[in-house]
Design a protein around this nucleic acid. Structure first.
Lengths: 234, 234
DNA sequence: ATTGCTTCAATTGTCGACAATTTATGCCTG
DNA sequence: CAGGCATAAATTGTCGACAATTGAAGCAAT
């Protein structure tokens, strides 16, 4: 099972066999991190020069970024970095609620006991970091994604895993970076994570799905308020 | 009038603005239709010659086909038409159950009355075609997808719509074409469609979602049996 | 001053050739 | 005769240049 699709964006130039792949990762990081702002016009010649490559591989990278919806492209008119409006984020959170709910159900059915134990250990680490200084909000965010990622893996459903990890999580990360850190509902989230993990350990598919959907639906309500406040002030 | 600087007088410009797009559509049709069998090795030079274009646009088409999972590509080793095994189809049907269940819920909430009426009309047409000769199984299949497509549209969720219509339905179509026509459970499917439409008309979100999930889950059970029979006989 | 057309620059789409990598072939060696 | 290494063929990855299309700037006429 060759599945090395973990995205550790700690450093760039992660040795990849192909140039297009590396450029894809670089641009993706730049977009999510905010170095390339929303709505920025993408000019192939300029970016090719900036990354020191030809337009061929760059084009492939752009096409892939378009597929994961970080870039929007119009046939002869060029391409721009996606603009995350409230409607799009609502669609994404709704889709995520659906897919992760199913993933939690599958995890309750299929997750090996060893993985469940590891999940519990992970939550213990998060518990420890909640008491820490508030500056670690970033790691708490990543920890949150880490928990959800493990559920997606445990679903043993390749399609769901790829779409959550490859597309939806990226857009949510981008939204977080650009909208500033969300308020630290870390303790609440942790409690909900614990309940979900408990339902999975009990092999209660129905409850696992319901709790996960409620968890994500609640998260969206928070995000929605923040986005609307930002829109009002503009 | 702008100077017509020697453009080809042939009327191919009505097809699609770009070559890569057209080639993408052609290859997609060939794969789904079975002209390009599962597991076929894709050689860029050969296909470029076959379609009478250069490798550049062809590569873009292949990349897009890879994104919708009709082609699998390994960095320097080349690409092949996807091989639909039972596990992959199960993943797809499970994801579809999740997303379409949510779509039905959203449709019950958001679908305008006029669209609901049109949906009912569509089902009447299907009813009429059920009594027809059995040779129309193909159209019944397309009619089935047509129904599900309208639910996806009615969800008003762009992400769900694009993923269902752009990716999942394509793979299911491909599976159908390659596995021969499935047995005509047309009457049963139609009844279930009617119940779903009724729940939507009643604005019963919960029921609409449950019925849709049960409908798709049931469909998978049928498909699963067929696939396993085929695998056993091979 | 505004509207309309024409012209021009900028950018994307397409092409053919070259370089890097993988897979297949055949020879040599044990 | 089997196995492994070296070479060769085939295929993919990358590059620079050319063609086609879009959007805007400039000019003319009302």
């Amino acid at each position: 099972m060759p599945e090395p699709l973990l995205t550790t964006d700690t450093e760039e130039s992660l040795e990849s066999p192909t140039l297009a792949r590396r450029t894809f990762d670089s641009i993706k990081a730049d977009i999510i991190g905010g170095q390339l702002a929303q709505g920025t016009k993408i000019v192939e010649s300029d970016l090719a020069l900036k990354y020191g490559i030809s337009r061929g591989p760059l084009r492939e990278a752009i096409h892939r970024l378009e597929q994961i919806k970080l870039i929007v492209r119009i046939p002869h008119a060029g391409s721009r970095v996606v603009t995350l409006d409230t409607k799009m984020m609502e669609d994404i959170y709704t889709a995520r609620e659906s897919l992760e709910g199913m993933a939690a159900r599958l995890a309750a059915r299929l997750m090996p006991d060893a993985e469940i134990a590891a999940l519990s250990t992970l939550l213990d680490q998060h518990e420890a970091s909640v008491g820490e200084t508030e500056g670690k909000a970033y790691f708490q965010r990543e920890g949150d994604i880490d928990f959800h990622f493990r559920i997606a893996v445990a679903s043993r459903n390749q399609w769901i895993l790829e779409n959550l990890n490859g597309e939806l999580y990226q857009l949510i990360r981008m939204c977080r970076h650009q909208s500033g850190q969300f308020p630290s509902r870390a303790q609440l989230a942790l409690d909900q994570h614990r309940q979900i993990a408990a339902a999975i350990a009990r092999r209660d598919e129905e409850l696992a799905e319901i709790l996960m959907r409620r968890h994500i639906s609640g998260a969206w309500e928070i995000v929605k308020q923040i986005l609307e406040e930002q829109n009002d002030s503009s």
